[in-house]
Design a protein around this nucleic acid. Sequence first.
DNA 1: CTGAAAGCGCTAACAC
DNA 2: GTGTTAGCGCTTTCAG
Lengths: 341, 341
Amino acid sequence: MQKKSEPTIHDIARELKISASTVSRALQHNPRISVKTREKILAMADTIGYRPNVLASNLRNKKSNTIGIVVPLINRYFFSAVISGVEDVAFSAGYTVVISQSNDLANKEISIAHSMFSNRVDGLIISIAMEPTNFEHLKAFRKKNIPLVFFDRVVPEIDTNKIVVDDFMGGFRVTQHLIDQGYQRIGHMAGPQNLITYSDRKNGYKEALEKNGIPFDESLVVTNSLTAGDGVNAIQHLMNLPWPPDAIFCGNDTTALSSMIYLRDKGIRIPEEVGIVGFSNEPFSRVVSPSISTIAQPGFVMGQKAAELILNQIAHKDKTFTTMVMPTELIIRESSNRRKV
Amino acid sequence: MQKKSEPTIHDIARELKISASTVSRALQHNPRISVKTREKILAMADTIGYRPNVLASNLRNKKSNTIGIVVPLINRYFFSAVISGVEDVAFSAGYTVVISQSNDLANKEISIAHSMFSNRVDGLIISIAMEPTNFEHLKAFRKKNIPLVFFDRVVPEIDTNKIVVDDFMGGFRVTQHLIDQGYQRIGHMAGPQNLITYSDRKNGYKEALEKNGIPFDESLVVTNSLTAGDGVNAIQHLMNLPWPPDAIFCGNDTTALSSMIYLRDKGIRIPEEVGIVGFSNEPFSRVVSPSISTIAQPGFVMGQKAAELILNQIAHKDKTFTTMVMPTELIIRESSNRRKV
DNA sequence: CTGAAAGCGCTAACAC
DNA sequence: GTGTTAGCGCTTTCAG
């Protein structure tokens, strides 16, 4: 870590011919220490270049002042926005943020959870991987009473703080919007249904169809992992149906975009012939042409909220858990706006 | 951190009526412990749900097994890609990654550096903020011999490992490409010139002009912070010049995009009337219309390399520093390709 | 092959 | 107000 070992409180105690505990207290601005000695101590700390050893303090206090965050992939707009929000409030509160990505793999997630636990994080914020598991590695946090906050992709059976977007309403609004635009046969690219994020979107879609007297047709739904490639395969399948859809509610913006590119290459006009709506409001959705209608998810704010929840839980040992549902916002852009609202 | 305190090596020692040191050794697979006792210990550890307390181990070993990374903004494609790469190799090597963002503010960066130091990170990977400072907070790491790696935005006067992209060649290639496309009057939106990242891009631009016998005209260069708004102001200024440019080398993709939108709104055709090239290959640059020519920066790979450099430095206490220069790749897309190469 | 003992740097009763 | 002391949980000589 360093060559000659760093100055400690004992060094500054020795210099000043006082005790280490006094130094420790002064450094924490304990009021029991006189202003004079405190100032002396602070000055000495400064001159010998003292920096508190957080490791030692953490061990002693049984508190790491660290919160962990794990996401499927750091390098995805929504998740990096959340991380940014978490870091924003955590740092202000004097906490360190440690980060890991599961790559949507159950085993990596389990391994991360163990590592975070061994590192004694004071709280864990997580959006679970796509790959299903029994979640024992997360239940462990609950059992040990280590604050746990889920965001976006949550585990229903674990009772703790959660912060999600209203995926059901999102799916509903998207579908209602497409119906309002006069589309008659609306398909859906759904994500893995073990994640309620995605099943809610699908349920919202079904609900909207039903409300409008349109029979739900399972053959118009393709379920996959919502990668760009999945989008191409799905749109290809859907458009080759005997009676293809005239609009698609895509489970995310990535599939919306790859579908759009496929359709464009086939000479199919958007939104005139086929309407497309995505989900998540990725930055590119606003600037592609045609721009993609989508549902906004306030990632940065969700991150801030998640951090606040965890900090409260750490501070007050709250026993009551809440599920914050962030409102969805439908952003109507060119890809579905054939009536030019 | 937890309610009833966690099992320790002493608990498992007591259960097995052996000493804690034996347990400690067994847990580290020290060959001096017989296989039999080790297996007993491992089994017992498992049944009582023992998890090593990394904090304690770190304190004792004077090593945190943690590497810090600080970027201007987590939620920016290039930086999140780098973080993702760092996490990828660091996690595999058993390291924890702690993360912070400077928001391009000098004071936040200084505060982060202090915090990382106090947390005894084993190494620090950083891309510095736009706001200039004297870098004392970073020199401190060098002085204490704590491994330090700069990426992208580096500090020339600090001698350590660095990993950058070849910004000079990037700027050169962009400009040469625009010249090859027949553009005659090429403007440039430059970033803050205290960052060599940006001054190199500008120098590459100048060099290319010179090589082609085109006189450098300072009035065609606008220097700003390269936000979307800056791009609009800059393009407006440039296009209102008595003799406006017919091509712009934008310092990043963000300004390239906002410039493009401005021009489109003015009815100016791209690339026919004005050519645009950006820098960084943000995901949106590929999918907007017209797609934006740009320079690719391999963020994920840079992150992996940065982590490898730091891990080597930690392991071998390397005394020789290298500067890795990642090759630039010019990606020609629609926004500058009027000759349809 | 295993145990005893000291200590990493800091904190917090408990004294006075 | 300040000092003494013990200990957070782990590792590591040094003994045997």
